[in-house]
Computed example of a mutant assay.
Amino acid sequence: MFSIHINSVEEIQTAAKSLLNHFPSERIFAFYGKMGAGKTTFIKALCRQLGSVDPITSPTFALVNEYSTSTNERIFHFDFYRIKDVEEALDIGFDDYLYSGKYCMMEWPENIAPLLPENIVEVKIEVLDSSRRQLTANIV
């Protein structure tokens, strides 16, 4: 199990690097937390640590954004907050993304729970106060 306190915005990059180092061979990360917990902000930090050269924004309406790294690798960022049923995820080719071997970062994965495979990194972000977060992660 991985656990880290994030006491300020300035510590996010370090926390992101630590998470990636703790799970070096994992590619699928599912982020859980309340609205405003910092899921998108943390995914931005992870993408930066992975070398993304693209602007990183929440794919709330598109469901998925694709980012490129400086080495032409791809990172997929999903936001399932507004999804109405799992068929929508299947319609965008979710399985193809998931099994591509590329990094997949998912916000609101509980909305597509039946589609989630085993052995993914479940990341929980708990709000401690306005600037501090507790992040825990393990493979489920």
Rank of each mutant, 00 (worst) to 15 (best):
S8R: 14
T60G: 10
E118T: 11
Y67W: 12
V121F: 00
D129K: 00
S68F: 12
E10T: 06
A45S: 13
D95L: 09
V64Y: 02
Q13D: 15
N7T: 02
Y32A: 05
S131N: 15
I28Y: 10
D96T: 08
N72E: 12
S18P: 08
S68T: 09
P117Y: 10
V53Q: 15
I6K: 03
I75W: 03
K102S: 00
E10C: 01
G33N: 11
Y103Q: 06
K102D: 00
L98W: 08
D79Y: 01
R82E: 08
G93Q: 08
K44C: 00
R132Y: 04
I120F: 03
A113V: 15
Y67S: 00
P117A: 00
I43N: 07
F23C: 09
R133D: 13
F61K: 07
G51V: 13
S70R: 11
E26Q: 15
G101C: 04
N7F: 08
N119C: 01
E107I: 03
M105G: 02
Q13R: 15
W108H: 11
I75G: 00
P24T: 08
N119I: 02
A113M: 15
P114T: 09
G51M: 12
E66Y: 00
L20F: 14
P55S: 08
S3H: 13
N119Q: 10
F2K: 07
I12F: 05
I92L: 10
T40K: 12
R82Q: 10
T57M: 00
L98K: 09
D85Q: 02
C104H: 07
A16V: 03
K34V: 12
E11H: 04
M35Q: 14
W108D: 09
I43P: 07
Y97F: 12
E122Y: 08
I83Y: 09
E87A: 13
F80W: 01
S3C: 06
A16D: 09
Y97W: 06
I120H: 04
T69W: 02
T57Y: 05
M35V: 15
